[in-house]
Design a protein around this nucleic acid. Sequence first.
DNA 1: AAAGTAAGTATGAAAAATAATACTATTACT
DNA 2: AGTAATAGTATTATTTTTCATACTTACTTT
Lengths: 127, 127
Amino acid sequence: MKNNTITVNQQFNEEKKIVFDENSCPVTATMQVLGGKWKCILINAIYITSPARFGELKRSVKGITQSMLTQQLRELEDDGIISRKIYAEIPPRVEYTLTDFGLSLSPIIQTMAEWGKQYRLNNESKK
Amino acid sequence: MKNNTITVNQQFNEEKKIVFDENSCPVTATMQVLGGKWKCILINAIYITSPARFGELKRSVKGITQSMLTQQLRELEDDGIISRKIYAEIPPRVEYTLTDFGLSLSPIIQTMAEWGKQYRLNNESKK
DNA sequence: AAAGTAAGTATGAAAAATAATACTATTACT
DNA sequence: AGTAATAGTATTATTTTTCATACTTACTTT
């Protein structure tokens, strides 16, 4: 009984009920798919060099290790973002391309690319 | 001498010299600023609830711990993406807002938000 | 016969990111 | 006197990421 007024006030004080989680924040949802250090870079690399081969990606994506590349490509494949085509040849050949779903991410990647270009220009001019 | 022809062939075989690193890949450059689990989510949250207070962010951004929030806000501040305004009051009050530089990232965040909405719609309809 | 090629797998170690918990200061309210 | 509020810091633990290295297969070239 003592706390009645306080309780009522607290309820009325909940002005902003905004919550950021997977269900109510679309950015959080996107991060579930694009999270991690390499996903965006790999999607961009495959977009540009498509069809991209494993060894080619290993050489061109600087800093990535073979096991990381394998792992990230598997995750992208599991998420339906890239498709993996194996040629039964010796030596083996595997080609990676973006699926339609993967292509739907390209506006994000392109926006990131544009920002990155500007960012670098600004940094250059500040030298 | 034996390997002359091979050496020459290898040089000519370098058809694609595309490299993805901080210097030549703008997506990689962007990732340097937006990388990590929380950056995009926080930028979005501050964009929406601006001016955002510390405790408010702690409550609304689900899953983030206090120390992560502090750390990420510091990094965003160091990168010039957000600004931090301290009010000398008791209890203390600190307000976070996006800087102009931070606002320049909003096309990326908006594109991510739009994709996330679509993604969720697609997932809903597949149930 | 040895080395090279492509696309990996397997394993253990190290580093980085993230989380959990306890603690701080100052003031107002009960 | 005890409790709450705000915006943190400090410390340790746990989890996730990333790295390094060795190994595999089957065929070709040296």
